[in-house]
Amino acid sequence: MTVSGANSYTVAQAVTDWLEHGLGGRDPNTVYTLANLARRHVIPALGARKLRELSAEDVDRWLAGKSRVLSTSTVARVKSILARSITRAQARDKVKRNVVLLCGTPTGRGGRPSQALTFDQAQALLDATPATTMGAYVVVSLLTGARTEELRALTWSHVDLTGDPDSVPPVPPSMRVWRSVRAGGDTKTRGSRRTIALPERCVGALAEHRARQTTARSAVGERWIDHDLVFATETGTAMDAANVRRDFQRVAVAAGLDDRRWSPRELRHSFVSLLSDGGVPIEQIARLIGHAGGSKVTESVYRKQLRPVIDDGATAMNRVFPRRGVRPSVRPSEVPRTPRRPGQNPQLGL
């Protein structure tokens, strides 16, 4: 680029170049998110500025304005987008220095704190679940604590609805939470990779869901794209996060909940809260939800050789939320509590 060309190079050009050429190998979902943030928050405010004329004071004012409407983490992300774009331009002699590196990250708006369903709200949500893909999704998410990114990647080959009752000890129905929609298909951490027993209500919901999916697959014929996904679209493809949120909010409204206050991720928080209220020790809950330090299932385990299967959560949820038509034997607050060690935190941060 000529000197005159470099002098006219704009922030928008730098950001666009980084989005198009600086994100090779990144997960498509990550690329989409970064592009969306850049086009909403960086380019409209600073895009017209010539890159060589951009000052640290310009960036400070821009970040201060964003901190009034965005969370701290989002402010940091949009700042990073600008910084990386300028670093790429700097390496190509289009600007002498990266002024973003001279700026701090202001504190943004506080995000909405996560919350958990009460027993009555959880019961109402389960009672309102329709005979649909999202209905089955809600049941499994709430009663197993699996992350939404894990359930969206769950395959039927990792679900065992029968177990092996004749083995010693018996193997209960279970699901292998070994994948996610993250880059590379891995779970959030290696400790997140786990096999968990399925509560009876999950077994029933998944069996009915598989039958519905088989019928739907026959109806669409060649348009069905087989990825073996448990929770899939009408043509067998992966569900995206936006679709899950939208469909979950419809179920929430049917249960009498304010759809503006609840999101799918809070089903996991509710799982933790309900088990904690039922006296399940924090160490066991950590294993169930795949936190570091919990028990691991080796990668060499096969479908009929699951050892060990984490069944504490299934046992507790069978008591609290039995299959349809059976009255709960106990509410979480009525389950005899396991004594906690002095200083042990009664809640588990997610």
Rank of each mutant, 00 (worst) to 15 (best):
V3L: 09
N7C: 09
T10W: 02
V11S: 05
A12F: 04
H21C: 06
T30R: 02
V31N: 10
T33H: 14
A35T: 14
L37R: 11
I43K: 00
A45F: 07
G47E: 02
G47Q: 02
K50A: 10
K50W: 01
S55M: 08
A64Y: 06
G65W: 00
V69D: 09
L70H: 09
T74Q: 08
K79A: 11
S80M: 12
I81F: 03
L82C: 08
S85A: 15
S85K: 00
T87V: 13
A89F: 02
Q90D: 08
V99Q: 01
V99K: 00
C103Q: 06
C103S: 11
G108R: 00
S114N: 11
Q115K: 15
A122C: 10
L125E: 03
A128S: 12
T133V: 12
V138I: 12
E150F: 02
E150N: 06
A153W: 03
W156D: 06
W156Y: 01
H158K: 11
D164F: 10
P172I: 00
P173C: 06
S174Y: 08
R179H: 13
V181N: 04
S192K: 02
S192M: 03
I196D: 02
E200H: 14
E200S: 15
C202T: 10
A205Y: 06
L206V: 09
A207V: 13
T215Q: 14
R217I: 05
G221N: 03
R223P: 00
I225C: 12
D226Y: 05
H227I: 09
D228R: 12
V230E: 08
T235A: 06
D240K: 00
R245Y: 11
D247A: 15
F248L: 12
V253E: 15
V253L: 13
L257T: 04
D258Q: 04
D258W: 00
W262Y: 06
S263G: 14
L267H: 01
V272I: 15
S276T: 13
G279M: 07
P281D: 06
R287Y: 05
I289M: 05
H291N: 05
A292G: 08
S295V: 15
T298I: 10
Q305M: 14
Q305N: 15
L306P: 04
R307I: 12
R307L: 11
V309E: 07
T315Q: 15
A316F: 12
V320H: 04
V320I: 13
R324M: 10
G325C: 06
P328Q: 08
V330M: 07
R341Y: 10
G343I: 07
Q344M: 10
Q347P: 02
Q347T: 15
L348A: 07
L348R: 03
L348W: 03
